[in-house]
Design a binder for these strands. Structure first.
Lengths: 205, 205
DNA sequence: GCCGCAACTCATCGAATGAGGAATATCTAA
DNA sequence: TTAGATATTCCTCATTCGATGAGTTGCGGC
């Protein structure tokens, strides 16, 4: 699903040198989360990474490709979903909410999600990532197993609630949501997800 | 709430001439909805409006002020909410969903909403508009009247579901949501809104 | 008639940006 | 040691953008 963009990554090889490539990617992610998708510049990243702008292009070719790399999350969304499906079905919603909120609280794993949110408004490729990875891949896998009946709609609805929460809590920084405890949000989102995955959605529209 | 940005609008005066100012604003809105908040340039707007870029600045001063104008929605969100509150409380969720989805289907009223979504990631002022106008203003008014108990959280949750739907349907263009009928979405969102406004939210978090 | 103000245009500046060419340094394998 | 690749830098180009100063046009009131 996610394009063959990270195929031959020479990352994870170097151990001692903390590869410059990796540094650049990290800086790009930080810039992404601070200034939004359109606020990132090759030069800005290079400067902050203490590196020549040309080097950024040397590694990633083009600005868009750099950003596509920066936006990758670790782990296959379908496998994540499969793992959740191995647990209790009654608590699936809550477990899903827990997983997502934990990903979002962790500064390291959070950034790609943020970046995707802002990027999907600008870049069609990031929007596609959102659709394919997050909606179809992750929630689609959950819904298909739990309620084959209209599972695509179920996945889309659950995803939309979750996307909305992320927007409001982390990007718009709506004060009530931003200051709510993680436990409470897990409970509320868990209930909503469980509902969309399992409840009767009413007559066909 | 919304800043005193549109105070002395010399709009709505001219009748014959379809004021250039208005044309500029319309073009800005169109650009906003096509290229996102960061994709708008004074020069681009001016060009498309058949006008000198200097004129855009003459009217709106600065780029940010132009965009803040373009992002204004017509009507006070609190009054909209009050009007909804005069109807059936049992159908409040559904009526709210109907109102919003109608606003979003109408090309004329839709654009500021879209623009706010993409703008709230870039501009703190647009994010503030989202918080104050949409969450506190609109949903806050609804929730405070319906369930004073934890009305801020209720408003934020309802708003988050609605924001997520808008993101997924209109910006990410998730195919299932994008192709769902308006009636079905009204029903589903209506139920969700009604739930957040009235249901027991569980123990305090 | 002319005065003043609003509408509007022209030309230009400086800054930032993405892209590319060409060169040098560093390292690795034979 | 040498050859080739990879890592890294310097310099430059064309473009775009927001902003500004200075000017021109046209209309309504006196």
């Amino acid at each position: 699903m996610t394009p063959a963009v990270g195929a031959q990554d020479p990352d994870e090889a170097d151990v001692a040198k903390v590869s410059t490539r990796r540094t650049i990617l990290d800086v790009a992610r930080r810039e992404l989360s601070e200034h939004g998708f359109d606020g990132v510049s090759i030069r800005g990243v290079a400067h902050r990474a203490g590196v020549d702008p040309r080097l950024v292009r040397h590694y990633f070719g083009t600005k868009e490709r750099l950003l596509l790399h920066a936006v990758q999350v670790e782990g296959d969304p379908r496998q994540l979903a499969e793992r959740l499906l191995r647990g209790s079905r009654r608590r699936l919603g809550r477990h899903t909410a827990t997983l997502l909120l934990e990903h979002w609280s962790n500064p390291r794993t959070m950034i790609p999600y943020r970046a995707r949110l802002s990027g999907s408004l600008t870049s069609e490729e990031v929007a596609a990532l959102m659709r394919d990875d997050f909606v179809s891949g992750f929630f689609g896998t959950l819904a298909a197993q739990v309620s084959p009946d209209r599972h695509e709609l179920r996945a889309a609805l659950a995803a939309s609630q979750v996307v909305g929460l992320a927007m409001c809590r982390y990007l718009v920084e709506e004060p009530t949501l931003a200051s709510s405890g993680q436990d409470e949000l897990v409970r509320l989102m868990g209930r909503a997800i469980q509902h969309y995955l399992t409840a009767d959605l009413g007559p066909l529209g």
